[in-house]
């Protein structure tokens, strides 16, 4: 059986909020390393991979592989019943038809308990190869969100060009064109506001802004985001957490 207690409901709330619009129904794969998820969006253009490592829970117990097929809108409704500072305990049997959630508030001794019905979800699991990316760009999450939001006003797609000097996001649309360039720099006082580019060769790829804007719903998970690019492979957008990650993969636009 699964028993996993997380100290702060807000962590789980933010993770689900980050992915629910992209993948409304998905399997949470639980085993002794933690709770993982991999799912493609309906159009098969983007893929979400999430991991909450076992050491982010206390206690964590899961002796065999358990798949929890969950509708994330249902889970969101139940998580709204938890306060951010509540502890959440997740419980499920070995062959579960429901997931049990207990919210505990130690301050006012309030305990609430919910069960969500599970679904059978037939999900294709993709093998994601370990990739040495040509460019990895780490930038403030809020900056990436702003760039995506700004450029999406002008165009459906954005070209991301990484060079030694920095990264340039540019777009063109019916009303005109626009670009934002971030030069590599280090903020000593606030390292999370730095922009860093690790580059083995320059890259220039085009992506759908609609998806990137959607990925930015994960902005509350981390102060920085890493974009990893190589020519002709999907973009990796990674939000790291203390005990896990949310990764989004997005297929590039291709000239035909």
């Amino acid at each position: 059986m699964l028993e996993a207690r997380i100290e702060q409901a807000s962590v789980l709330k933010r993770v689900i909020e980050a992915i629910k619009d992209l993948v409304p129904d998905c399997n949470f794969d639980c085993n002794d390393t933690g709770i993982a998820l991999q799912a493609m969006d309906n159009s098969h253009v983007a893929l979400v991979a999430m991991l909450l490592r076992a050491d982010g829970f206390s206690p964590y117990r899961c002796d065999r592989n358990i798949a929890l097929g969950i509708n994330l809108n249902s889970l969101t409704k139940v998580l709204r019943c938890a306060q951010n500072e509540d502890m959440i305990t997740l419980k499920a049997d070995d062959a579960p038809d429901s997931l049990n959630l207990v919210f505990e508030n130690t301050e006012n001794e309030r305990i609430s308990e919910y069960d969500i019905k599970l679904m059978d979800i037939d999900q294709e699991h993709l093998g994601i190869p370990d990739t040495e990316y040509s460019a990895s760009i780490t930038l403030p999450t809020a900056e990436f969100q702003r760039i995506c939001r700004d450029l999406s006003q002008l165009s459906e797609s954005v070209a991301i060009e990484a060079t030694k000097e920095g990264v340039k996001f540019s777009c063109s649309g019916d009303i005109g064109n626009g670009s934002v360039t971030l030069r590599t720099h280090q903020n000593v006082d606030k390292p999370e506001l730095s922009t860093k580019v690790d580059l083995t060769e320059p890259v220039n790829l085009t992506f759908s802004l609609k998806y990137l804007v959607n990925f930015c719903k994960a902005s509350s998970l981390s102060q920085t985001v890493t974009l990893s690019l190589s020519n002709e492979v999907p973009l990796l957008v990674e939000y790291k957490m203390d005990n896990g990650y949310v990764r989004f993969y997005l297929a590039p636009k291709i000239d035909e």
Binding site: M40, H44, V45, L47, L126, Y249, I254, D255, E256
Partner: peptide, 14 residues
């Protein structure tokens, strides 16, 4: 024209 690729093609072939 620019077409969006489908993600699974990259990972199955990759």
């Amino acid at each position: 024209k620019i077409f969006q690729g489908q993600i699974f093609k990259f990972f199955l072939e990759g």
